[in-house]
Design a binder for these strands. Structure first.
Length: 1132
DNA sequence: ACACCATGGCTTTTT
DNA sequence: GCCATGGTGT
């Protein structure tokens, strides 16, 4: 059957749409227009999705219809001659904003799916990627190619059609942020794209001029934001009514896609070029004469669709494509009536006339396209009839649309109007044959569909290897050959590049063998980064694999394994550590000790002690607060000893032990030490300002006085003093290695002068003097006219909103605050994308608020959080279980067995069992074994029963999984405990996936897991705004940085009961670190009121910022600059 | 064993 | 202002 379809519409849940855009009104208005198949639009929105599932029911072939009772009610509002069946199809539009090939891309894409299940699957996947709840047309920081991939994975029948491909702001081929061809955007998946939406401002003949579009079906949809706009463009089909048939027709295999109903492109909003605000419009040729500059305001013109088409066209005007289908240009009846009556399209006159017409004659499409001439003659509306005739003959004139302004129809001149109104029935047969265009029978099948060009040159994207030119400092660091080298490198001075270049040079010149190099970092992230860069620079991973790159803890674990054997060490993570401490305190309490301190207090002290290489029997005075020493040190020593005994009993080490024990061994075993010193003849230590005593000693022991030790860091970026790091070791190393060469890297390649000068004001005079004359400032050559911005807001929330607005301006509009996408971007930079922007703050609390505000505005952002993946219930459970199987379980692990066995062990039994075992100095594995051999009378009947069941359970698992590799073991565990559902659990899946490479080495797996919990902290590649604490931002860089909460009390941070002012310099450095993350632009924002601990406090600008402000003002006065370098942003 | 209230403490955080 | 902890009471 023949029918009209409009796939691209929206719901009331999209921004800037009509309130009455619900399924009922869509159903009614589709009939008034004469549309049979309607896209649902917006199905990723939870509200609309609920409506869809409630009100739509399955119809034939993957289509849906409004449920019977609602439909019958609605039909009362549909004039009988208009009534028809209406089918819905699951379609949604996604706004993709992302960076690709160094340019920000913004395009909109239609996604089609055949059934509710696959739609739900897609919703779930997109939900994880971005915020789909705040708008019917969600903005995702997702590459369109990857969206397509997801759609294809979701359903075999799913497909994607790029939307309104020519509009300047948000489209595939758009002039502002588009590509030049389809393959650039969809790469290897391009052949899955078979149709393109031409959009209101272009029609098929314009598209025919671009030969690369020949193979695509050109569809047209309304993109309706209100029911009245339905079908202003639409598609004609002759297929049976089903999802599959429509897809096939579009794919072109069959002839069911007849063609399209079009707007006159001149009526579209972006047909010509111009400036709406300036009231200036021009044709492409004229635009070029003007150099694309607006003669009114001298800014670049908004280039329209016609311009862009001519840019990409490889064929002349009026070229007719061989595969062309039928198309017909129509003017919405409302617009015709508006022109006829010389009143606005939304006026009562027009609405009433419209109603009368469709009640009498039928649907709008019937009136516009099909009413026979004879009937038109008898029309009571001569001007309307003439207008329709003119339209059908294409005898229409326009003031064409430009820069978001719709074009205006001009059907009659004054003469014509008078004449027609005078003579009511003018219609002789003036030889008006139905124009060829109106004959629907004209079908031109697309016989020729070129083979997909999947060979898009991938190589073009491979980054060309850059040839670096080193500055004198860097060169000195590279040229240094023997002995200790200390590199002091300010922010953005090419620290990593220098260190990796040095390593590369050492290997390539054959001076050092790769396997004798040891590179130590603090974080896994840094280690990975270094490894990746080296792999690039060393042309392959074979050499890199021989290098020893790792974190302090990782390297020490490896060394301890050498000594203790691989399977006798298990790392006690945070939770386990706490349980052991609880056990220790319990034991002491039951012996009559009383404490006024929490577990955390003791753990903290012990951790500090270990960092100072102090054991339980050493004098702990130095790690205690002054005044506490005598009173507490005895207790602490006792707790420390007990805690340590419990760790030892169970072969557990905590994080600090890894380094502490390694250092102790190195001290004791001089043969081993010498062996290692020879082995690692070349040692690199990164981020040296963050080192603590034990780590320093570790390096001292590995690297003798004249060793090839290279340390690199920046004392001014030392921000981890609160966890034991001490920047003084940077000074100490110079004394301890008197022959060391010191190199300063002071040229910053990252930030502009403005940013760097400002940041210097913060630390000026407070720099840590490594030696006389050091503390030279980092400088930059990058001039800019970009100001530093200091801005205030009335509240923390409005501060967040202001940041959001500011970002939107920078990005050049996201389509949200602009109605439709009309008024965006005069001030837009255009080249920025979300991933180039970071918002930094001091506390997570601020971060959460900012995230909430940005997300509800639909701006994609990621709040970096180090929530421990392993403490999620499923993961924790399996880790506990694996520990038990590996014979390394702690008693605490038993609490995780609750829902794994049919006979869980009770609290009392566990306690009794634990106490008994501790008494007998048995760890879990040993205790279980002892009990297996000879049951003990100490326990009562119930306890004995529970313990037997436990032993039985553990043994049976052990037996059944013997010889299994880890993944097999995991599946077996899920299976045998009756938790098959876990196979679908994503945490379980991730665990299984990570376990994959460990064969049967459970302990190795668990230890790595404990040392590498960097799973989803922050994704640098994600197309999202980064929300980071100032600490977490260290080592990263962004084009634009906002530092929020620049207030007294927050920066520097004032703890509510913090008495010591000792950390103020660290706070200063932290702010310095934060500021120097910015490359191009830096915003410092603060709030005049802020709620802290429930109290509303008056804010005052941070003293650090005041310093900057003062300097900038002074600088302005001195140089007499007119240019404001420091400006107040007016936020609202 | 659980429900209830009161109190206190609030940051940054790799491994 | 909110959450977690701990103590008391049923």
């Amino acid at each position: 059957m023949e029918f009209v379809a409009d796939f691209h519409i929206h719901s009331k849940y999209s921004r800037a749409t009509a309130k009455n855009l619900d399924l009922e009104n869509l159903y009614i208005n589709a009939q008034l227009k004469g549309i049979t198949v309607l896209g649902t639009g917006d199905f990723t929105h939870p509200g609309w999705w609920r409506q869809i599932r409630q009100k739509l029911v399955r119809a034939e072939g993957g289509l849906f219809k409004l449920n019977e009772s609602i439909a019958r009610q609605c039909d009362q509002n549909v004039p009988p001659p208009c009534r028809r069946d209406v089918r819905f199809m699951l379609v949604t539009e996604i706004s993709n904003i992302y960076k690709k090939a160094d340019k920000t891309r913004k395009n909109h894409n239609l996604v089609f799916l055949p059934d509710l299940d696959s739609a739900q699957t897609l919703i779930n996947r997109l939900d994880k990627i971005g915020n789909i709840r705040s708008d019917g047309r969600p903005i995702l920081g997702l590459d369109a190619r990857n969206l397509l991939e997801i759609v294809l994975e979701t359903s075999d029948e799913g497909y994607l059609i790029p939307a309104h491909i020519w509009t300047p702001w948000f489209s595939l081929l758009g002039s502002k942020s588009g590509f030049d061809c389809i393959e650039e955007c969809f790469e290897d998946l391009s052949h899955h794209i078979f149709a393109l939406e031409t959009g209101l401002s272009s029609d098929p003949p314009m598209n025919w001029r671009v030969s690369s579009l020949d193979r695509f079906a050109l569809v047209s949809n309304s993109d309706a934001h209100s029911p009245a706009k339905l079908g202003r463009e639409a598609n004609l089909f002759d297929t049976n009514l089903s999802y599959g048939a429509i897809k096939k027709a579009l794919e072109g295999g069959e002839e069911g896609f007849l063609g399209t109903i079009e707007f006159f492109p001149e009526e579209g909003k972006y047909h010509l070029d111009g400036h709406r605000k300036c009231g200036f419009r021009s044709m492409p040729a004229h635009t070029n004469e003007l150099d694309k500059i607006c003669p009114v305001c001298a800014k670049p013109l908004t280039l329209g669709v016609l311009y862009r088409v001519e840019q990409l066209a490889d064929r002349p005007e009026n070229y007719r494509c061989e595969s062309a289908r039928f198309h017909q240009n129509l003017i919405p009846l409302e617009d015709i009536l508006s022109e006829v009556y010389q009143v606005g399209p939304k006026t009562k006159t027009v609405t009433q006339a419209y109603q009368r017409l469709i009640q009498r004659y039928g649907s709008e499409f019937y009136i516009l396209r099909d009413i026979p001439l004879e009937d038109l003659k008898k029309f009571n509306y001569p001007l309307v009839a003439e207008a329709i005739l003119k339209m059908r003959k294409n005898d229409v004139h326009f003031d064409a649309g430009y820069d978001g302004e719709f074009g205006k129809v001009r059907l009659f001149n004054a003469d014509e109007r008078d004449r027609l109104q005078g003579q009511c029935c003018l219609f002789e047969t003036t030889g008006e044959k139905k124009t060829a265009q109106v004959k629907k029978t004209q079908k031109i099948a697309s016989k020729f569909i070129p083979k997909p060009t999947s060979q898009f040159p991938q190589s073009a994207k491979k980054p060309v290897k850059k040839i670096f030119i080193f500055n004198s400092g860097q060169q000195a660091a590279l040229d240094h050959c023997q002995g200790p080298l200390i590199i002091i490198a300010g922010p953005g001075t090419g620290k990593t590049r220098t260190i990796t270049s040095r390593i590369t040079a050492l290997i390539k010149t054959g001076k050092v063998k790769a396997d004798r190099i040891l590179a130590i970092t603090f974080t896994n992230q840094a280690a990975n980064e270094m490894r990746n860069r080296l792999t690039d620079m060393l042309d392959g991973s074979t050499v890199t694999a021989q290098l020893h790159i790792g974190t302090f803890h990782g390297i020490c674990l490896g060394l301890l394994k050498q000594v203790h054997g691989a399977d006798s060490l298990s790392i006690a993570d945070e939770t386990l550590k706490k349980s052991i401490m609880a056990d220790a305190l319990y034991q002491l309490k039951s012996k009559g000790h009383r404490f006024d301190f929490s577990d955390d207090f003791f753990l903290q002290i012990i951790s500090k002690a270990k960092q100072q290489l102090l054991g339980p029997t050493d004098d702990l005075g130095s790690v205690l607060e002054t005044g506490q020493q005598d009173a507490v040190s005895q207790t602490v020593a006792k707790v420390y000893q007990t805690y340590q005994d419990l760790l030892n009993l169970q072969n557990l080490v905590d994080f600090e032990d890894l380094i502490y024990q390694t250092v102790c061994l190195l001290k004791k075993d001089s043969a081993w030490r010498r062996k290692l010193q020879e082995r690692f003849s070349c040692i690199f230590a990164d981020e040296f300002q963050d080192i603590n005593y034990s780590q320093y000693q570790f390096i001292r022991l590995l690297a003798p006085e004249k060793a090839n030790l290279c340390v690199i860091g920046d004392p001014d970026q030392a921000i981890y003093g609160f966890r034991g790091s001490d920047v003084r070791y940077f000074t100490k190393i110079i004394d301890d290695y008197p022959e060391s060469r010191i190199v300063f890297l002071s040229q910053n390649y990252r930030s502009t002068k403005t940013i760097l000068n400002s940041s210097f004001q913060v630390i000026k005079g407070r720099q840590i003097q490594i030696r006389q004359g050091s503390g030279a400032r980092t400088y930059s050559n990058r001039s800019t006219d970009q100001c530093l911005t200091i801005a205030d807001a009335p509240s923390a929330r409005s501060e967040a909103v202001a940041i959001g607005c500011s970002i939107e301006k920078l990005i050049g509009g996201t389509g949200f605050h602009a109605v439709d996408f009309g008024k965006v971007g005069d001030s837009g930079e255009g080249s920025l994308s979300f991933m180039d922007i970071a918002i930094l703050f001091r506390t997570m609390e601020q971060g959460r608020l900012i995230r909430d505000v940005l997300e509800s505005a639909g701006l994609p952002c990621q709040l970096a959080s180090r929530q421990d993946w392993r403490s999620r219930p499923t993961v924790a459970k399996f880790i506990a279980l694996l520990r038990i199987i590996a014979g390394q379980g702690a008693f605490w692990d038993l609490t995780h067995l609750q829902d794994l066995t049919s006979a869980p062990i009770g609290k009392n039994t566990l306690l009794a069992f634990k106490n008994w075992s501790y008494e007998k100095k048995l760890n879990l594995a040993a205790a279980l074994q002892t009990l297996t051999k000879n049951p003990v009378p100490e326990f009562n009947k119930v306890q004995r029963f529970e313990l037997e069941a436990l032993i039985c359970f553990v043994n049976s698992i052990k037996q059944k999984t013997a010889g299994f590799n880890l993944s097999q073991t995991l599946s077996h565990l899920a299976d045998m405990t009756g938790h098959q559902s876990w196979f679908k659990n994503e945490n379980f899946q991730e665990l299984a996936q990570r376990a994959g490479s460990y064969e049967d080495n459970i302990l190795g797996f668990l230890n790595d897991l404990a040392l590498k919990k960097d799973t989803d902290f922050y994704h640098p590649g994600a197309q999202k705004i980064a929300l980071l604490t100032m600490h977490a931002a260290k080592g990263l860089e962004f084009e634009v940085v906002y530092i929020a909460g620049c207030e007294q009390g927050l920066i520097p941070f004032k703890h509510h009961r913090d008495n010591g002012a000792g950390s103020i310099d660290e706070e200063r450095r932290l702010f310095y670190v934060a500021m120097t993350r910015a490359k191009e632009q830096l915003f410092l924002t603060w709030s005049r009121k802020r709620v802290i601990y429930g109290k509303i406090l008056d804010g005052e600008l941070s003293p650090f910022v005041k310093k900057i402000e003062k300097d900038l003002i002074q600088h302005m006065n001195q140089t007499g600059q007119k240019k404001r370098r420091c400006e107040q942003l007016s936020l609202f």
